[in-house]
Design a protein around this nucleic acid. Structure first.
Lengths: 249, 249
DNA sequence: CGAACTTTTGACAAGCATCAACACGTGTGG
DNA sequence: CCACACGTGTTGATGCTTGTCAAAAGTTCG
């Protein structure tokens, strides 16, 4: 729900500014970026692997996911993006997409010409710095996912994902911390955790049986946060939730 | 072996410049960064999880690896670093380490005060840009590792890792493309692929039996590159080997 | 009201883990 | 120089976690 004619990119900007403060001029330049809006349905492609990047997209409403397809046809979801996220800073700067980005729900993206994004990062060091910090946090999440998939059992992986979402969605300010809509089917959850849909189903049942969560449709309610944290071996440090640049600047 | 008194950071700089060109002044500023050298033995810690970052390290000689420890004591290696890599740009900018970095072999690191690294990225946009690109490539490698661990079987995972190393070490110019030293024990290989040492051993035997590789101590010889690429479902695109900024600038 | 998708259940199979033991090379101290 | 500990690679036996296949029950939506 767009607040009273808020500029398209203001939410994205707020997110970046949490990482590194902008000057008034930085803000003006950022909001003046030429962005064209595009509505997409669930399942619509934002970026396709091997595409040449022409636009850098910011996710304004709705959820999206990045994924890669491996040789035997298997799909691995490598991250989930929430409203306000820059999608494909990577593709904008690296020129060619090394993975796909698809909408999880219907939503809107703002498309900014790659050149404009590159230029603003160069001409406004604070903006470049915020993009670097944002990218570093993404990297931290990727590393945690590697550890999650590589070294935790199925039940823990799913509990961990539920914890991560609770924290990340809390950051968007639109969800109760312990009761949120997770727009993923069990098959998609499986693709995110390196499991199969059937097994995800059994593990979710196990979490429910133990009173850690309950689910209704795609709404997850966390009944026992501490228990879920323990089950998922979760610690929020890797999300770098605090305004990290403040402490060193 | 240091070439005729080459400046400490010149190799690291060359690596960054492949991503984005520096001006003569950028180069001078980069090489003038205050760096103190530190020798480390195999197994020595470069960074410990939860450390406050005071220095940003560049790996000058030797190999290192990043890893996380999960709740049950399992270890997951999330990346391997080769000479010339910046270790922990992430920790420098994010302030607190979310994972460990340990030496795989004996070697040397250059330690630069965090503040100096932050300042140079801000005052020299080309350097900041190169750091961003470097970080984005790291992210791309992390995503491929997620897909590798999450969706490929044991044999493919190992074949994939061997392919990745062949390409990355080729980039350092110090190794024959198809015959290189891989300073990882089978247990460490297991920690990098989300497997156990015993199973890694069996899968390596399978790769040898099929004539794809041969090994002697820790030297890997690729006997059949195409076969290994197929077995590992490998494609080098995710390493973004080309000078990517050239094509869009 | 039916088509398409998602969740759930059961039976069974397979890949990988676990545990234990042995072989081999290397370095170290007596 | 030998004895020994130590790390690493190798092998075998066994079992558990997770995958596979198939079908039924519930949900969404035109």
């Amino acid at each position: 729900m767009p607040d009273h004619k808020e500029p398209t990119l203001s939410r994205t900007m707020r997110k970046l500014e949490k990482r590194f403060p902008f000057s008034p001029e930085d803000r003006a330049a950022f909001l003046a970026l030429p962005a064209s809006m595009k509505k997409l349905e669930a399942g619509g492609y934002v970026v396709r692997e091997a595409d040449l990047a022409r636009h850098c997209c910011a996710l304004i409403t709705g959820f999206a996911y990045r994924h890669k397809i491996v040789g035997d046809g298997g799909r691995q979801i490598v991250s989930i993006q929430v409203p306000g996220d820059f999608i494909d800073l990577q593709n904008s700067f690296l020129g060619i997409a090394d993975h796909n980005v698809q909408m999880l729900t219907a939503g809107e993206v703002a498309m900014i010409p790659v050149r404009a994004v590159q230029d603003i990062a160069y001409s406004h060091p604070a903006i470049g710095r915020a993009m670097l910090l944002d990218t570093l946090v993404d990297g931290s999440i990727f590393r945690e996912w590697i550890a999650n998939i590589g070294r935790r059992d199925a039940r823990s992986r799913i509990a961990h994902l539920f914890c991560e979402f609770a924290v990340r969605l809390q950051g968007t300010g639109e969800h109760e911390p312990h009761n949120y809509r997770l727009p993923l089917s069990q098959d998609q959850l499986a693709d995110a955790t390196g499991l199969t849909g059937v097994h995800v189903n059994r593990m979710i049942q196990s979490l429910r049986r133990d009173g850690l969560i309950s689910t209704d449709k795609r709404t997850v309610t966390i009944e026992n946060w501490d228990g879920l944290v323990t089950a998922g071996d979760f610690s929020r440090a890797y999300l770098h939730p605090e305004n990290v640049s403040g402490q060193l600047n």
